[in-house]
C-alpha cells in the first residue's frame, strides 16, 4: 500500500470538513486503529463547537440601525448636497459683493438736509468769494444807493452792538 502518511494537517482538515472524500476515508480508517488520534480529533471538534456556540448569540441579535446598509448609503449621499449648497451660497455672496461695489459709484447718494446746505454753501463760496468788485453781490436797487454810503447812525449803531 502506498498511501500517504496521515499528518497533523489531515486531522485539522477532517475536523474542518475540508478533506476530499477519498482522503477523508483514509483518515477515518487511520483513526479507527489509533485511539489517541481519535481522542485528539474528538477534542478538536469539541473546541470548535464551544467556540461556535460562544459567539452564536451575536448572529441571533437584531442588526442595529446604524449598521443598516440603506442608512449608510443614504448618509453617504447626503454630504454632497450641503457642499453643493455651500458653493452656491458662496457664489451668490461673491456676486452680491462685487455687484454692490460696482453699483456704489453709480448710485452715489443725492445730498439732502444739512449735506445739501453744506454743498450749496460751498458752491456759493466758490462763485462769490473771488468776486472782489462786488458786482455779482449787489442787486441793482442798492447799487445806486451805495456810493452815498450808509447813514452814519446805522454804522455807529452797528459798531456799538459789537
Amino acid at each position: 500500500m502506498t498511501a500517504r502518511p496521515i499528518n497533523e494537517d489531515d486531522l485539522h482538515a477532517l475536523v474542518d470538513d475540508r478533506l476530499d472524500p477519498a482522503r477523508g476515508a483514509e483518515v477515518e480508517a487511520y483513526l479507527a486503529c489509533n485511539p489517541d488520534a481519535r481522542a485528539r480529533v474528538e477534542r478538536l471538534r469539541i473546541l470548535g463547537r464551544d467556540l461556535r456556540s460562544a459567539f452564536a448569540p451575536v448572529l441571533a441579535e437584531p442588526v442595529p440601525a446604524r449598521l443598516n446598509l440603506a442608512h449608510i448609503l443614504k448618509a453617504r449621499r447626503r454630504p454632497r448636497r450641503p457642499a453643493w449648497q455651500a458653493t452656491a451660497a458662496a457664489m451668490l455672496l461673491t456676486l452680491g459683493g462685487l455687484g454692490g461695489w460696482a453699483l456704489h459709484g453709480a448710485l452715489a447718494p443725492v445730498p439732502a438736509g444739512v449735506d445739501a446746505l453744506a454743498q450749496e454753501a460751498g458752491a456759493s463760496f466758490a462763485v462769490y468769494a473771488p468776486d472782489r468788485s462786488g458786482r455779482l453781490n449787489s442787486p441793482p436797487a442798492t447799487a445806486t444807493r451805495s456810493p452815498a454810503g450808509s447813514p452814519p447812525g446805522s454804522r455807529a449803531r452797528s459798531r456799538c452792538r459789537i
Binding site: 459567539f55 452564536a56 451575536v58 448572529l59 441579535e61 442588526v63 449598521l67 446598509l69 440603506a70 448609503l73
Partner: peptide, 20 residues
C-alpha cells in the same frame, strides 16, 4: 448599488460576530 445591498446585507450578522 442594488447588487451591493443584495450581496453585503446577508453578511452583516457574520461580520458582527467576527468583530465581537
Amino acid at each position: 448599488m442594488s447588487d451591493m445591498v443584495r450581496l453585503v446585507e446577508p453578511l452583516i450578522p457574520a461580520l458582527r460576530r467576527y468583530a465581537r
